[in-house]
Design a protein around this nucleic acid. Structure first.
Lengths: 333, 333
DNA sequence: TTGAAAGCGCTAACAG
DNA sequence: CTGTTAGCGCTTTCAA
């Protein structure tokens, strides 16, 4: 395989000149540049990026840590990240953790072995193991889509409080007063944020929030079904269910259907994320659309800035939500 | 940052010994090994993988080329690939092509610049650009999940003919004789394979296949809707629709619902892939489950073998399907 | 504008 | 079993 030396001989210049002609064309004379380019073409030279990266001490890659890549919301975010990374000349290494902390730490360790230049974490946890986190200053790690309450990383995330509030206000506006909640894991900061938004809407409307109306899911279809079953068993039954993602809402709708009830006639249901399927459920789901593409762009931009040693001005960047009203919500009967 | 030299000095051995103690512990004495390990710990040494990979002329990474990562079927496959890759000490580089040939070729080019050791292509096309494909023998490129008819790459894929045949036989067994098809793009080998399976089932049952019963989609929800509308307009109307993926089946079901008809009472619908949502549609979808995890394992194993210069014994590896019967199919009225 | 030379951190002969 | 030595292919001073 042709290397830089092959080209330099062919062009009758030094290897340094070849390198310059390719990397900083403006510093070599037009004549030389052309000779080099011709030699490159003639020899079929392809620069060895491993050598280049090694020498420049940068891998030009990011690692995306994701609990489950087959979750459509995450894959949309990853798609945005990859797009932005590519525009900046970076590759994306996939780190599917399956929610396993050990796997996550093992993958995050690659930051210290120069296998990747930065980490975009889609879970709430700081990814490095305790022995790895003895940081000298600012580590190139950023969180995307989650709420991080320990200030361990900067974040790019949705206005979760506002979004949850908007959803609940939408239901209150329709006339609902008894609204069930299918929330996320209770120990997650994201859950807290959304619950706060929900509570704020209730409070502003002068409605009381009852503990039995709050159930917990793990963002899976199945947990949506289970939680919905619990809410359906309440007396009086809630007339609406706010779910913290679309999958749980879909599970809840199936459970409601199974109970012989109808959405939205008997019960309104809302989701969160606006995955592609949300428009194709029966009935189509009222939900919150997140700017997934923007998440990726901002996460990459901030990570690049951090790698340049610039701490982000605002540690937590909040992006706007969009309420998407479809047919799964209506006036209570 | 501590490097191998730091450790060698600290342990009082040569750098070569440090390298050996870490890479092939069995060839150094127990005593030396321990001294080295202690020095590693003391110095906080983390091997520089970029240097290691550069020196060994391997990146220890694969690139997965995928048309659209937010398609749940692909993300399940990728998840399997990542798992298998990790077990072999490889990382996965994500190559989301958006179906754009130029992007695909640009990403595939990374094979020649030593940025990746092999490519797993999830589309049917050979990924290298014409000027890149002047191969010296066996290129480390494998296709996963698709049908490739030009023999440009080995493949790991489903028994698509058998699966489509099983689906149609299932419908015929229920008593359907007029079955509409929502196929994939007509120029795709995968479409041809599945259509052959469908035709075989019809023929075996002595049923005629009418051209107007065959429509074409692009695997999107929307194309399923459009195609279903066309099939619904036929007289006599088909009593069943076979769709070449779950998304199109979901789109078709929505269109059928919109026409005031019901699944499966008026029309049976089948999908393909068994994505997670297929169990949560209304009614739950009869479909074909693909062994996505096995795809990844086999693709990685074969790629590794190819990188060792071993051409796969059978160029095309076929994995078994599983027919999943749910409630979207029933006897015709 | 160009070339010579040093060297990134590591592995792999080759001796001993 | 261990050390010496020679690079991998490239970028980057430093001089010219």
């Amino acid at each position: 395989m042709a290397n830089i030396r092959t080209v330099s001989k062919l062009a009758g210049v030094s290897v340094a000149t070849v390198s310059r002609a390719l990397r900083k064309p403006e510093v070599v004379s037009a004549d030389t540049r052309e000779r080099v380019l011709r030699a490159v073409k003639e020899s079929g030279y392809k620069p060895n990026m491993m050598a280049r990266n090694f020498r420049s001490r940068k891998s030009f890659s990011f690692m995306v840590l994701v609990p489950d890549i087959s979750n459509p919301f995450f894959s949309m975010v990853i798609s945005g990240i990859q797009k932005a990374a590519k525009e900046s000349g970076y590759s994306v290494l996939l780190g599917n953790t399956m929610g396993d902390v050990a796997v996550e730490q093992e993958l995050a360790h690659m930051l210290h072995t120069s296998q990747t230049d930065g980490i975009i974490q889609l879970s709430s946890r700081f990814p490095l193991s305790p022995e790895d986190r003895d940081s000298e200053g600012l580590l190139p790690i950023i969180n995307c889509c989650e709420v991080v309450d320990d200030d361990s990383m900067p974040t790019v995330a949705l206005d979760n409080i506002g979004a949850a509030r908007a959803l609940t206000e939408h239901l209150i506006g329709l006339g609902h007063t008894r609204i069930g909640l299918i929330a996320g894991p209770h120990d997650s900061p994201l859950t807290s944020a959304r619950m706060a938004g929900h509570a704020a809407a209730l409070k502003a409307a002068g409605l009381a929030s009852a503990p039995e109306l709050v159930t917990e899911g793990d963002y899976s279809f199945a947990s949506g079904e289970t939680a919905a079953a619990a809410l359906l068993a309440l007396a009086p039954r809630p007339t609406a269910m706010v779910c913290f993602n679309d999958e749980m809402a879909i599970g809840a709708m199936q459970q409601i259907r199974r109970a012989g009830l109808s959405v939205p006639a008997d019960i309104s249901v809302t989701g969160f994320d606006d995955i592609a399927f949300a428009a194709y459920t029966d009935p189509p789901l009222t939900t919150i659309a997140q700017p997934t593409e923007d998440f990726g762009a901002h996460a990459v931009a901030r990570l690049l800035a951090m790698m340049d040693g610039k701490a982000p001005a605002e540690k937590h960047l909040t992006l706007p939500y969009r309420l998407v009203v479809r047919e799964s919500t209506a006036k209570p009967r």
